[in-house]
Computed example of a mutant assay.
Amino acid sequence: MTTPHGTEQATEALENGFDNLIHAPVRLRICATLDHAREVEFSALLTLLDISKSALSKHISLLTDAGYVTQRRAVRDTRQRVWLRLTDTGRSAYRGHVAALHRIVGDPQG
């Protein structure tokens, strides 16, 4: 496997929607948050998820490497800020994963 979200996993995600990369609890919460917003500031995610900067950075890096999240840097209040958003690929993968979870638990919404 050459990437965190290898070809075999990507194919599986496309076939049944379940995505092992997104399924990790923190990454699932990141995607759920980003799905409902145009962008979210890194520090807002820190507060929401109540995890360390380094842990959040690692999860964001995995999602970015998979092409699921993009980052935008901007200055606000004289400080450099990082804003995150789901890509179209990330949004599709997240929604496919949620639908797969609904199917797994027998929920007709999936």
Rank of each mutant, 00 (worst) to 15 (best):
L48K: 03
E41Y: 03
I30R: 00
L48H: 08
E39S: 04
T33N: 06
D35H: 05
V40K: 09
S43Y: 12
L21I: 10
A32H: 11
H36Y: 10
S43V: 14
R29V: 02
I30Q: 00
L46M: 04
R38S: 13
L48I: 05
H36G: 07
R29D: 05
E39V: 04
V26K: 14
F18T: 03
D19F: 03
L49D: 15
T33D: 06
L46K: 06
L46G: 09
T47Q: 12
F42W: 13
N20E: 15
I30Y: 01
L48P: 02
L48R: 09
L49A: 13
P25S: 13
A24C: 11
S43E: 12
C31D: 14
S43C: 14
A32S: 15
T47R: 14
V26N: 11
T33V: 07
L48Y: 05
F42R: 08
L28R: 14
H36Q: 12
R29W: 04
T47W: 04
P25E: 07
L21V: 11
L48M: 11
N20L: 14
L34I: 02
A24V: 10
L21K: 09
T47A: 11
D35W: 07
D35A: 06
P25W: 04
T47I: 09
R27I: 05
L46S: 05
R38T: 10
A32G: 13
A32F: 11
L34G: 04
H23F: 15
F18G: 03
A32Q: 11
A37E: 10
L49F: 14
L21Q: 01
P25N: 09
N20V: 14
R27A: 05
A32I: 07
T33K: 03
F42T: 14
L45C: 07
N20A: 15
S43D: 13
A44S: 13
S43P: 06
T47V: 12
T33W: 10
R29P: 00
D19V: 02
V40E: 03
D19E: 06
A44K: 07
L49M: 14
E39R: 05
A37K: 11
A44E: 10
H36W: 09
A32R: 08
A37S: 03
R38H: 04
A32P: 12
L34E: 05
T33A: 10
L49N: 13
T47N: 11
T33L: 10
A32N: 14
I30E: 00
L28K: 12
S43T: 15
A37M: 02
H36F: 05
V26S: 08
N20C: 14
T33M: 08
H23S: 15
D35T: 11
L34D: 03
I22K: 01
E41S: 04
L34H: 05
I30T: 09
I22Y: 00
R38M: 10
H23L: 13
E39P: 01
R29C: 01
L34S: 06
D19A: 03
L49I: 13
D19K: 01
N20K: 13
V26T: 14
R29F: 00
F42S: 06
F42P: 06
L45R: 01
L45Q: 05
I22D: 00
V40F: 03
E41I: 00
R29E: 07
A37V: 05
L34R: 01
A44Y: 08
